[in-house]
Amino acid sequence: MTLVAYLLLVFVGAYVVAVVEEWSTSGRLRPTAPLLHGLALLARESLTPRRHDRNLFEAGPTLLLVAAVLALVALPLAPGLLPVELATGALWLNAALVYVAVALLMAGWGPDGAYAMVGGFRFVGQFIGYAMLIVMPVTAVAMRAESLATIAVVESQAPLWNVLAQPLGFVLFLVAAMAVCFLPPFDQPVAAAELAGGVFGEYTGVRLVVVRLGRLVLVLTLALSVTVLFLGGWLGPWLPPAVWSLLKTLAVVLVMLSVGRYLPRLRTDWALEWGWKLGIPLALVNILWVGVVLLVGPA
């Protein structure tokens, strides 16, 4: 029963993300538009490419949705509202997010089309660039919490939120989070203008609904993980804990969806170069900083 309620909540969250996404691109706030689009897609014919690899083609979008949901269940909304309580929650989050790259690789190879394949490989390149920037800030957060459990991570932020205690890690993780859900300026794999839809260009009808839903849940997951890891999760005065979590998540979703609109699309080689030559040294500095503060700071 609680599981059904939780999944319903995830669905509502994804819907809100869809409304916000449209607002951030077109400037119009239309609460019913995603519903109408979704219904229209469901009614539309679901075409398949001529020589597609059936297993990979069908499994790609599903794996995207599954990976996003698996990452989401390890993140708490409030002290009692954590679907799966893992002792290694922060590591589990990393593990589930890797499967986003697997899903895009499968979806890119499956249709046997040039645009989709190029999109899939672009995402793998991007993945090599951002992977370390997800893992290393999470390591620093876990160091401060002295635990990998997500509940303990939030509780460790009661004196000072991680966004202030380790601002470098916050910036790196936020940028990497945008790269995970291929939002602009990291939308190389789906680049509408040059790849005709990229990875998901060959998906239509019901399959496209799964793709869109998977991506929306992914954005929601990353926003909630930024909230839990850096913005103090449910901590806050007056309002009930879960409301604080949701408000912060909504704010992060707004930032993630709107910031990239003002930047040019990032080339894959630049993403790799900046990720490895700039991002990883900064992430190491962040880990060093957190370690030094933990050693010499007040207990």
């Binding site: 593990a95 890797v98 690789l105 490989f121």
Partner: peptide
């Protein structure tokens, strides 16, 4: 062995994605 299991699931997925790239 929870830690090792999650670590294995994470590391092998990233390794094999890179491996797929090199194979192609």
């Amino acid at each position: 062995a929870e830690f090792l299991g999650v670590l294995q699931i994470m590391m092998m997925a990233s390794e094999m994605v890179v491996m797929a790239l090199f194979m192609i």
